[in-house]
Each structure stands twice: as structure tokens, then as C-alpha cells.
Design a binder for these strands. Structure first.
Lengths: 195, 195, 195, 195
DNA sequence: CATGAATGAGGATTCATTCAT
DNA sequence: TATGAATGAATCCTCATTCAT
């Protein structure tokens, strides 16, 4: 038991080190040895937990993505109205991206880079199902514009990634007011205007 | 004259090869030798035109960014009304990102990655001035919501990057209708609603 | 224990290879790969023991210099008369330079070339202290001429380097008689003539 | 005529640059391009005057050596007594080594390094003939000890190289008094003591 | 499970030399 | 004669990965 815990701790330490180092240096500029050092293990130990470097980032990506979506949908349930549901999810995502900066940055880098296997990328996408279903429902109910999911995502969720990166770079701080404005902008761009 | 032209051609071939290879493999996974090969020069020749690999990507970034903004503002002038001006610029940017995919992808990768020198990044940002001025004017005239430029960018320009990448991945094709929808979404999210 | 020994062996093999190859080809004409081959290790292994090529030669220099001076002063002690002490030291140095040719040649090349870091050079010099002290004593006692240490060195120790190199080049063999003559020449040039 | 002079000037500039750069960096750490730059010519031009890099240093060595010996024997003639002749030559050599530091350093580096072709080395040695003949005469006349020429050289001429290098390193300055002492030490170590 | 030493393959960069002008 | 652009062949060094312990 204690032994198993220790294993899990090591694995987590490796994942954490990977995120931090890849965030700062990029995938290829992060040597396995450095990851090992930051996780306080030997380089060889990494290979007990992961097949190789590519596998390490793939798994890290999937794990972070899972954490992300789990957090995003934690307070949502399908009984909610579309507008309420959307607001709940959107604000959770915003919360995650702006608070859990390290993880969000890592995801952004993976998503904008040929760093992750296509299969891992697909694996990551499918976690978003509940949001897509919500949108589907919204379109049917005439609450959300009948736009492609790509457009909906581009105008509601993706801006948060940009804001997160701006904040991380120090150029800009997103306070509660901004956040509310951002939410309004997101909702405005996809809601069906009531006559 | 012929000699100078040849030099320029070589430099351009190097820039072009860099864009394509970095797009597909990332900065560190692109060997100088491969760039050289694709540009039909010897690896050593690269060093006649660029100080080193970092300098090569920095310069490529700045060059592409300049092309991008030049294109974006080519048909805009400050006499236009805010709404017209915004539409003109937005559509030019959309045109660039969706047609000139290679270049746009390269910029996206640079902007989401610790791949470019901070100084080059700054150099790239300053080209956006005209858009920021337009927004300033729009806010003064009460046409555009008094939001931070970061928010305006996040909700109008940045979504295009996401759409461009989605399209590139083949998952999605943006036709003329989509584009108009996208523009409406962008404008809706920042315009001041007429009472 | 066996592992440690193996490490030491490898390090020594590298130092030895460095000496031989640098003697024959010079610093810059000796590739790391060749040193590795001669030491029966992979090129990468060198970097486990030394930071880089410069560090390798620096360390080699310091090590050889230490061996040299240790040998030089092994049979000397400060109780001896100045003349006896000088003879003892001089003959040990001669012995080293003429027997331990490889090492002596390496030192000569380092000392006549911008091959070694200044700090390593300084590190090497300080080992000569006992000889300088002996000369100091000799001058005080009126046994040795009151000359600058540089002159004393130039006329007693340095000639041995020249003889060593001549012998190495095959042009000349220094037998026991020569050696005695050389010692007399050295001593004559610095001793105070008895009236 | 003017054209010929220009050629000679270029050649000389190349030789001069070679000396200075090799003195400071060593043979292999001195790129042809740097030599060219210092001599204000194109790299390709070097190859109009010298076959290749090795040839350049070889020729430089021979040229400097010739200058050196020409200077050394300029005021000597075979009519002089052995002692006078020796003093004259020794002091000219000292003068050269201590005044003409750049050239002397270059020779020292060549003589202590596998930098020069053996044939060029031989070529350089033969210029010393007059000194060897003087010694021959001295031995016959019983004025100079019947020692090997290598020993005589080691104890009279070679120390000057060491003093020159010490002086160059800034550790030590050789004034007129030192010089006289040095001469006495040199002469003492090879002259036959009068009973 | 865990490790640190070892390495082969590969990558950035340099440089002597050539060649078209 | 003179050149600057071009290059292939090296060279130093790094790093993902393995293996003996």
C-alpha cells in the first residue's frame, strides 16, 4: 500500500515536472534527464512508468485534459436549462484556465503544436461531449444559434485560452468585472437574440 | 543584380522551408540540415544569411508577421467609419488566415510556444497598432464596448486562429456562410447594442 | 568498489589518451572522438568525466603538473643544505623529464601555447613553491647568486625541457655523462663562485 | 612595379596577421577567414600566395626564422675571438627575442608544437650554422667546454626564450642589469674555467 | 522497483577550400 | 589578380534510451 502510494507519487511528480518544463521550454527543449531531476528520480526510472518520451507527453496531455474536463463539468447536470448550464460550464472553464494556469498552458501548447500524437489528441477531444450535447440541445430549443460547433467553440471557449496566456505573460490581469464582461461577450456571440 | 537576386531567392527559400518544416514538426524537431535540403542549399549556407537557428526562426517570425499585418491593413484607411473599418480589417485577417494557411499556422505556433525571443515577439506585436487605434476610436464614439483590448482581441481576432487550425486539421471547412456568421459573432460580441 | 575502480580507470585512460594525442597532434587537431577511441569509451562518455574539451585538457594539465612536482620533491626535505637540496631536486626533475617523456612533453606544449586556461596555468605554477623557497634560502646564505627567480629557472630547469625535446626528436641522446655535465652547467650558472 | 609592390604588401600583411593570430590563439584556433580579415584581403586571396593553411604557417615560420638569424649574425664576423663573437651573437639574439617579441613568440610556439612540417623545421635549423661553427672553434681552442651542441644551446640560447615568454606574460621585466646577469650565467655555464 | 553509468545516433555550427565573376 | 558566396566534411556536444547492479 505504502509502496503503491510511492509509485503513484513518483508518477505524479513526473507528470508535474513534465508540465512545468514543457511549459517553459517546449517539448524538444526539455531533456528527459531534466524531467527526472525535477521529479527526484533517475532518468531510467521514467521508463518504468512510461514507454518513452512521446508516451510521457501523450499521457500527460490526456491526464491534464481529463482533469480539466472533470473540473469543467463537475457542477453541471443535464437537468439545467441551456442558458444556466452554459453559464455554469463556461465559468468553471474560466476558473480552471485562469487559476490552474500551468495545466491550461500545457494544454494550449499541446493544441497548437505538432507535439502530441493524433490519437491522443482525439482521446482528449471526446471529453468535451457534455458541452457539445448542451449546444445541441440549445440549438434544438432555439436558444443557441444554429452554428457549427467549431464556431461556437471558437467564440466562447477559445477566447479564454488567449486571455489565460495574456494573463500569464503579465501583460494583463483578468479581474471579476472582466470575467463577467467576457462571459457576456461569449454568450452574446452565440445566443439567439430575443426579438 | 543577378547575384543580389539569387541571394534574395535563397533567403526566401530558407524562410519558406523553415515555415513549412516548423509547421509540421516544430522548432526543435526540424534540423537545420533538413531546412537546407528543402531550400536546395548546403547547411553551411544558412549561416551566411542567419546567425544561427534561433535567429532564423526569429527573423522568419518577424517577416511573416509583417506580411500578415501589411495584408490585414491594406484596404483600410482611417477615414472609414468604425464599423466599416472593423469589418474590412476583420475580413482581410480572415482571408489571410484561411487562405494563407501556412503562414498563419506558423504565427500561431510561435505565439503559443516558447520558440521565439521575447524581443522578436514584441517586434511582432507593434504591427497591430492600427487595429488598436480603431478600437480606441470605436470606444470613444460609443460604438464599441469599453472593454480591454485583450478582450476585444480574444473575441474577434483570436477565434479566427482556432478556426484556421480546425480547418487545417481537416475536421471542418469554413465556407462563405460560416465566414459571415463568424463575422457577425465577432461584431456582436464587441459592438454596443443599439437600444 | 569495483564500480568506482572502473570509473577511475576510465578517467585515467582518458587522461592518458589526451596526453598522447595532444603531444602528437596538438590540442585542436585532436578530436574528442579520437580520444574516446583510444580510451576505449564512447565520445559521450568523456562528458561524464569532464565538462568539455577545454576542461579535459585543463584537468589533464593540472594532474600531470601535480605528478611532476610530486615526483620532483619526493626525496627532498628542507633540512638539506642548499647545494644538496638543489642537486637532489634538479636530478629528480631531470629524471622525470627524460624518463617520463610523454608527460614532460605535454607540459611543455601547454606552457608554450594558448591551450590552457590562465587559471589552470596559475594552479600549476604554485606547485613549484619548495624550489623557490630553496632558492630564497640559498640567496640568504650567499650560496646562490641574488638573481630573479625567473633567471634561476631559465638557467637551471628550463634547459632540461629543451634537452628533453631534442631527445624526443631523436636528434640527440642524453647519457649519464651528459646529465652530469648538464647539472654542472646548471649549478655553475647560479652558484656563487667561491673565491 | 606598383603592382608588384602591392602583391608583396599583401603577402606581408598575411604573414603578419598569421603571426599575431597564431600567437594569441594557436594554429588551429585561427581561421583562415580571420587571417584574411586582419590582412584586409578576401579569404580566397590567401590561396593566391600560399598553397593552403599549412603552407602559410610553414612559410611564415621560415621567413621569421630567417629574419631572426639574419639579425642575430648581422654584427658578427668570423675574425672575432670566440668570446667576443659569442657575446656579440648572444646579445643580438637577446635583443631580438626581447624587443621583437611577436616574432620570437611565434618561433617558440612553432618549436614546441606539432604545428610545423618537419621539413620546414629542418630548413629553420640550418640558419644557425655560424653559431655552431663558433662553438666548434671555441672547443678546439679550449675556450668552450667540449659539450654537445644541444647542451650549449640549452644553457645559453634557450633560456632567452623562457625569459622572453615570462616577460610577455607580464610577470617579469628584464632590464639591462638582468640582461648582463643573464649573459654571465650563459657564458659561465659553457666557458672553460681558467685555472 | 530503482538506479547511475554508458552510449549511439544525431544536430548545430565551423572552416578550409573552391569557383564563378 | 582579387573576390565573396558557397559548400562538404568535420567537430563538439546532447540526449533518449538501455543495462548491469
Amino acid at each position: 500500500m505504502a509502496k503503491l502510494q510511492k509509485s503513484i507519487d513518483k508518477r505524479n511528480a513526473l507528470i508535474k515536472a513534465t508540465i512545468e518544463l514543457v511549459n517553459n521550454n517546449g517539448f524538444h527543449a526539455t531533456p528527459m534527464s531534466q524531467i527526472a531531476k525535477m521529479a527526484n528520480v533517475s532518468p531510467a526510472t521514467i521508463y518504468l512508468y512510461f514507454e518513452n518520451k512521446q508516451d510521457l507527453v501523450n499521457k500527460t496531455y490526456i491526464e491534464v485534459k481529463a482533469t480539466y474536463t472533470k473540473f469543467a463539468f463537475a457542477t453541471y447536470n443535464t437537468e439545467m436549462s441551456v442558458e444556466t448550464g452554459f453559464e455554469i460550464i463556461w465559468k468553471r472553464i474560466a476558473d480552471f484556465k485562469l487559476t490552474n494556469c500551468e495545466n491550461a498552458l500545457f494544454l494550449a501548447q499541446c493544441d497548437n503544436t505538432p507535439m502530441i500524437d493524433e490519437s491522443s489528441r482525439q482521446e482528449g477531444i471526446k471529453h468535451l461531449e457534455p458541452l457539445l450535447e448542451l449546444w445541441e440541445r440549445g440549438k434544438k430549443e432555439g436558444v443557441i444559434k444554429p452554428l457549427s460547433d467549431y464556431l461556437l467553440y471558437a467564440y466562447t471557449i477559445n477566447p479564454l485560452s488567449f486571455l489565460m496566456m495574456s494573463q500569464k505573460s503579465g501583460a494583463f490581469i483578468l479581474d471579476q468585472t472582466h470575467l463577467e464582461e467576457a462571459y457576456q461577450a461569449a454568450w452574446n456571440s452565440i445566443k439567439v437574440s430575443k426579438k
